[in-house]
Design a protein around this nucleic acid. Sequence first.
DNA 1: CGAGGGTTTGAAGTGCATCAAATAGTGTGG
DNA 2: CCACACTATTTGATGCACTTCAAACCCTCG
Lengths: 240, 240
Amino acid sequence: MSENVEFLKTNALFKNASPQFLKDASAAISVKRFDKNFVFFINSDEAQSFYFIKQGWVKLFRETLDGSQAIVDICTGGHIFGETAIFENNQYPYSAEAVEPCEIATIPLDLLKTEIETNNKFALDMMGSMARYRRQQDREIEHRALQNAPQRIGCFLLRLADQTADGGVTIQLPYDKMLVASRLGMQPETFSRALNKLKEKTGMEIKGGTIKLDDLEKLTDFSCSACSSSFPCNDLQSCK
Amino acid sequence: MSENVEFLKTNALFKNASPQFLKDASAAISVKRFDKNFVFFINSDEAQSFYFIKQGWVKLFRETLDGSQAIVDICTGGHIFGETAIFENNQYPYSAEAVEPCEIATIPLDLLKTEIETNNKFALDMMGSMARYRRQQDREIEHRALQNAPQRIGCFLLRLADQTADGGVTIQLPYDKMLVASRLGMQPETFSRALNKLKEKTGMEIKGGTIKLDDLEKLTDFSCSACSSSFPCNDLQSCK
DNA sequence: CGAGGGTTTGAAGTGCATCAAATAGTGTGG
DNA sequence: CCACACTATTTGATGCACTTCAAACCCTCG
């Protein structure tokens, strides 16, 4: 059962994990492949484990009584999810589903809990990670309130781009457009039209999920005026 | 300079504060009154202190280049603010302004930092508080995406109401309608009209900031269908 | 009482959602 | 390698919710 758990270190949260934690994790962890659309858990399920993504994309979301769905986050390699159940009476606060084939490590929550309680350095890292997530959420709320659809897309693209690039950049959408749309809180139709408007405004070239732009500044001029952060605003990794 | 700091205990975060922390705080703390519109700090200011609200309401917000403003949170007695600067390179991640005359305790961030690093129980409480805030933010994003204006107001009122009440309830808006509107991410005009629609739908009686409703269920029926939480959904206190 | 904000109401505009349908793209089995 | 099935994406037409601009009203406080 025991496995190499070195890969955990790709997540800064585990930088200061204790040898004991790594040892216990190594014994208890299980790494498996999951198909697209596999549901890891649903909102308010009793939580036993949290998950570490080695490969692939996972969608975190909540659903209302009348069937609509709100995306909480979309995570990929190096991220963990489900860990906040520790603070929620061991209930997952959202549902989690694979949006493509994934390789995922399942880890008992108890280990994490013990580590937080006994390893103060780790606890501090955990707080840092939670604070980063908070910033991301605050920004998200602000963007939904103050940016229109094309600006929101522009901002999303900027955070995918190499912001230090001087000249042109090529940006690759990380998952399909429908999912990007829901990640940004808009309909696929709106996304399509808004992306077209963005293309007109910035002269970008779009081919499938690949976007080329000869000058990043055209994008910042368009999007960043409706944002309270100043430009080099690299992505805040939520649970990374 | 030394003051009684027992009032800190009204915030659950300080339940397990160490004697040393309380002693140091007692020596370093300053409690003062501030006028309406007093600005405690602005976004990205260098942070020396965090603040504990004894009395009054404080608005936390961010502003964009083009002058719009997004409310991050609105806090009152027992809440703290500015404390997250610890995790943000000692820069405040938002601006803070009194929305009415306030009584506020100013406390050096260093004390908090030391306490987090040396008192594991305290660190755990801090994490719990951050997790609560996260839930609140997730809910906020969901509501903005899935609820319409009248529903959002209804949901806001529900969280102000005594949810265990069997028959009728009286709800008092905690601050003026313009501020409630911006807290809910809508224009004052929209708020006014949406409140009227809510009145039609639920038969509530509105007089200034006081709202009477003979049956809470009329409100839950209207608002809670577009929410992923189940009804008794008491307010998640952010920094309390 | 008068000045100044807060609040409401009206009229018009805008942006996004929705519904419908066409088109493009992808993976399947033959 | 092609044809089909299915899904993703785009485009068009229309409707609705919220915003914006403008003006009236109301309340409070000096």
